[in-house]
Design a protein around this nucleic acid. Sequence first.
DNA 1: GATAAACATTACTCTGTGGTAATATAGTTA
DNA 2: TAACTATATTACCACAGAGTAATGTTTATC
Lengths: 129, 129
Amino acid sequence: MNLNISTTNESGMSELTPATLKLMADFFKVLSETSRLQIICSLKYGSKNVTEIIEATGLGQANVSKHLKLLTQAGIVAREQQGVSAYYKIANPFIFELCGLVCNSLVVQLEQQNKPLQELTAIGNSFAG
Amino acid sequence: MNLNISTTNESGMSELTPATLKLMADFFKVLSETSRLQIICSLKYGSKNVTEIIEATGLGQANVSKHLKLLTQAGIVAREQQGVSAYYKIANPFIFELCGLVCNSLVVQLEQQNKPLQELTAIGNSFAG
DNA sequence: GATAAACATTACTCTGTGGTAATATAGTTA
DNA sequence: TAACTATATTACCACAGAGTAATGTTTATC
């Protein structure tokens, strides 16, 4: 894999090749859907099988299956077959740290727009914890 | 603004209302396009006007204008008119911290898949710096 | 083996959005 | 005022992807 990274550029960021930027964009894209964030959230305190995820999120079965495939391919969740059931768990808790940072950033941003957001602040903390 | 956050739920994550999840999803969505990441990267070391951003990224003028509008609305960049030109700058350097974390996470993930990625590691550091 | 349950896949529709050409708007200069 | 430059907006096309019904596949139970 050749990323064509030049270390002699004037800008540390302009080093990034389209391929590298696409890797990052694709990662963010996985997190850019409410349904997938719901699924991630439903797994914060332990693994669930698909049926339990469906109940927790209220999403359709085929839809959940598709999202779980995407999340698995992105390395965000991991799959483990147990009998007829497929159990999914968070593969990398880093995702919660990331969401917590974003939440806190949104808090600051919305506070600057004079919106009451004590609740959202608590959310940011719940991600981090 | 009522986010219906209940503090008595069994799960810290199931507290998140659809409205809150949508805020986060929309934020991630802004970062989920290569073109917008390109624009962000082009602004790492200072502000640029639209013409300079077009040159740095190779994107079309109307396209850049649309992306800049989105990035501005998301609070990621800020706009300042100077004569006929519009100068844009990063509104919150937090975005680079975030990208750096994601880069490093991708490094770990791809290393586990046995792919050569010294270059990508350097990228993660360049984001953080 | 037949049936049922859990999950995955397929095929389809529909919405959202990236890219772009054309046009509009605003600031600058002659 | 006219002409030019920089940027924004509009209208359009094309494609990607979310949701879902139907079907397929696998595993367990009888």
